[in-house]
Design a protein around this nucleic acid. Structure first.
Lengths: 248, 248
DNA sequence: CGATCACTTGAATTAAATCAACGATAGTGG
DNA sequence: CCACTATCGTTGATTTAATTCAAGTGATCG
């Protein structure tokens, strides 16, 4: 029998960004949790249009949430980091309107959708947290929309790198003070910011040449944080993921 | 004393898109409701960065939710229609990351933020609904992001008009079979789709000339719905607002 | 060792932004 | 009542940011 993490001892809890849990809450979450899952890089976790039977929390590894247009173009809605809840939409509405794919190998916490309602019903604090999490998601997507809709290519890229850096460091992924692992492809970033691969590449090159940030070999290094912030259109003072937030 | 609508008799409830309420649920919502509010066109309902003390449900009239960039550009996140909950973010996280403004005169249902937690705690069904509503919002913004990020100007405009038409008719705003009131400005649509006013204007002109849709004098008429759907990048089969959804 | 994949770069093209100006309408104040 | 002003929609001309097309590099893999 494989070792399964207890919610009370969840390794993610040690990060400041996540709210503390009372023992009762931890126990309830524990009952909701049906197991753990390890998946390989490239695996599709949830599929657009499908009715997911299981919901997840990312414990480890990175992924992307995306939608596909009729013509086959892809919009990356957000990057999935440890601590992110996957499938809330399916939990509540039944059907997913976007897909989720693992970029690296991942470890997921598994919940049964059939227990979702019982969990919400019996745990008002946790259901409040779920509203909170859904709001944070909306907020992140809204800011992405404003970025893609209003900013020029360079500002979009800077904004995306800045956000990834902050999100990653907040869950302990930082390497030293100014680097994070970033195992995505340039195409992923391009699809997230509504830019062509070529233009994304050229923009990254400029940032590298200007000594702002360099991203190679799956590692992003922020060489000049103030410059990066300056070039991004949103300062991101009130980043939803920086402040304490719930974890399920 | 001004006449105040009872939740059980809420005029919005008669539309199929909204879930039925049990008497208990209606009573609880009624207790949560602290009053009604009439505001004039142009009024800012909630301000980016502010801590809203009150939450609302739009009963009547139209508005916009938007964010502003450092350089003063504006991204319209979504249009506010009757039945939309306003300020869920503030309800749960305290602070708004976008503003909400009334485009026309509006009538709002008012809730006190201080009662929010009590409401959630005591009404698991309604808190489930709130998760649902937050998910729908996220889904709408996600689709907008995919539209703005991946589609050309004409497809974006068609998608936006199509969505507005469907949303509006679902809450009884339809005029005949193929028209709705649309008191927004071209600038609002431009800011929603990340396009310049000039280009938006030219695109609307083409749609008018091609007999697809015409928008003038605050009325949008869909002249050729199949053509409009065809030109929009997302067919929108699984529109979140078309299926039954909660109303608070 | 060919094949595939991610990244890179140059050149040509295009979609959309910007600049600029005008007409219509409505509101304001002398 | 009429000039004055502001707002919104409209259109032409020009410029630019970003796309597309094309091709080459280096690394990895079966």
């Amino acid at each position: 029998m494989r070792h399964v993490i207890k919610c009370a001892d969840c390794p993610l809890r040690r990060f400041d960004v996540f709210d503390r849990l009372t023992e009762t809450e931890a126990a309830a979450t524990q009952r909701f949790k049906s197991g753990e899952l390890r998946i390989e890089a490239g695996t599709t976790i949830l599929n657009e249009g499908s009715n997911a039977a299981q919901l997840h929390t990312a414990l480890d590894g990175l992924g992307i949430r995306y939608k596909t247009t009729e013509e086959g173009r892809r919009q990356v809605i957000n990057f999935v980091l440890p601590g992110d809840f996957i499938g809330l939409q399916a939990g509540v509405m039944g059907e997913m309107t976007h897909s989720v794919e693992a970029t690296t190998d991942m470890r997921l916490c598994v919940f049964d959708r059939s227990d979702f309602w019982t969990f919400v019903k019996g745990n008002p604090e946790r259901s409040f947290d779920l509203i909170w999490m859904a709001s944070i998601e909306e907020q992140m997507v809204s800011e992405a929309l404003a970025t893609v809709g209003q900013l020029k290519a360079e500002a979009r890229i800077c904004w995306a790198l800045l956000r990834l850096f902050r999100r990653a460091t907040s869950v302990g992924l930082g390497i030293g003070d100014n680097s994070i692992p970033l195992p995505f492809k340039q195409q992923d970033l391009a699809d997230a910011m509504g830019l062509s691969l070529v233009h994304t590449n050229r923009t990254l090159r400029r940032l590298r040449e200007d000594g702002v940030a360099q991203w190679s070999d799956d590692v992003l290094e922020i060489a000049d944080l103030p410059a990066l912030i300056d070039r991004a259109g949103f300062p991101g003072n009130s980043e939803p993921f920086a402040q304490a937030r719930p974890l399920i």
